[in-house]
Design a binder for these strands. Structure first.
Lengths: 198, 198
DNA sequence: ATAATTTCTTGAAGTAGTTCAAGTTTTTTA
DNA sequence: TAAAAAACTTGAACTACTTCAAGAAATTAT
């Protein structure tokens, strides 16, 4: 009973890893012994601007976001993370420099938080995971490039429709003003787009 | 004589790799036997929109850029790559899908072009390189996040000054209209910023 | 259920940028 | 070294968005 629950807890991460590489049963054991699931309450932060980011978060349930507060005091979402995404500030993580970002739960979430020393220890025991993290990062970078392309080439209205066509359920799930800032326009303008007043 | 030249050819990539991981002499031999340097002439393309991107390029000399052509027929630069950067379309590379981008030499350049089958063969012989590519991709993603932050929070003029303070030599090196599109404003507006007419 | 808080909407006024078109300067090519 | 091509500049007219302020609706907490 305990074991079954234990295994189920990490199913999402293990399944995600096994999309890209295959693990031996012994490696799965090692991984499971090192992982633990944390619950993050809605609006709780796992990273604040100015802190060094020392942790990678795998989202197994819920939704997180990375945001900044601009010079006018308004929050601007740079990145959302949902089930099966990793979220962290890689620059702060690698360079041990204070982060420019906040990372916060948009809704109550479950994450696997991997501290740098733990992760490095896992990578020494299962070097093949380097490949997994390589692929994850390369795909994330590719997605960031596409995001910049969309920001450059589409009008605000086009960005909204494109995004909500691709993620219809997501648009229901999170506050509009977060999506507006993610798409780089004001919450007021988003309201007008939705009302067809533009 | 031959050997010395041969080694010198790949110095920049080997040095870059050894910033992040350490290689055995035998591994260096393997690498050198698999690499070759290509010269790309100014304005020559190594990737065209619609092609599947099957190659990663390490820039050992010169400057490359990734760009799109927008709906008005204007080129918009999404990414520059200079000495010691990798450039590719990771999404097309991983998913075997047609690329959205052009990759072109801004000035005559020397690159180490690694085709996917060659690279995969190298990674099997030197698995530790997975870690190198992981770190490269994670840092690139971190840089992309900062880029989005700057696009979101700074005015056109601030972006221009920020960029030219960080890269004074670079601004001399490449045409202004490419920098303007990289910073997401028009070439005309950049001209006015530089003239102090704004 | 009620109050408190958060999120969304609306219109009016303002502005940071774009677009266009034409001319000038610089760089490249033959 | 002349001609052609590429890159840069300028001003005038325009527009896609922002900002502000106030109220309405939805959600959350008690």
């Amino acid at each position: 009973m305990y074991i079954i629950n234990h295994i189920q807890m990490y199913t999402s991460l293990l399944q995600h890893i096994e999309k890209f590489i295959s693990l031996e049963p012994s490696e799965i054991d090692v991984l499971e012994s090192c992982l633990n699931l944390s619950k993050i309450k809605k609006k709780e932060h796992v990273l604040q601007e100015g802190q060094v980011c020392n942790t990678m978060y795998f989202i197994s349930k819920g939704c997180m976001r990375q945001y900044i507060i601009n010079s006018k005091g308004v929050e601007q979402t740079l990145q959302f993370g949902i089930e099966n995404w990793w979220i962290t500030d890689y620059l702060s993580y690698h360079n041990h420099t204070p982060s420019n970002f906040y990372i916060q739960a948009v809704e109550s979430s479950e994450v696997i938080a991997l501290e740098k020393p733990t992760l490095e220890a896992i990578l020494i025991r299962i070097p093949k995971l380097e490949r997994y993290f390589k692929i994850v990062a390369q795909k994330a970078f590719g997605a960031a490039q596409m995001r910049i392309k969309f920001l450059f080439t589409m009008s605000a209205e086009e960005r909204y429709h494109h995004f909500s066509n691709l993620n219809p359920e997501f648009v229901q799930r999170v506050p509009q003003y977060m999506i507006a800032s993610y798409l780089d326009f004001s919450a007021e303008f988003m309201s007008k787009i939705r009302a067809g007043k533009v």
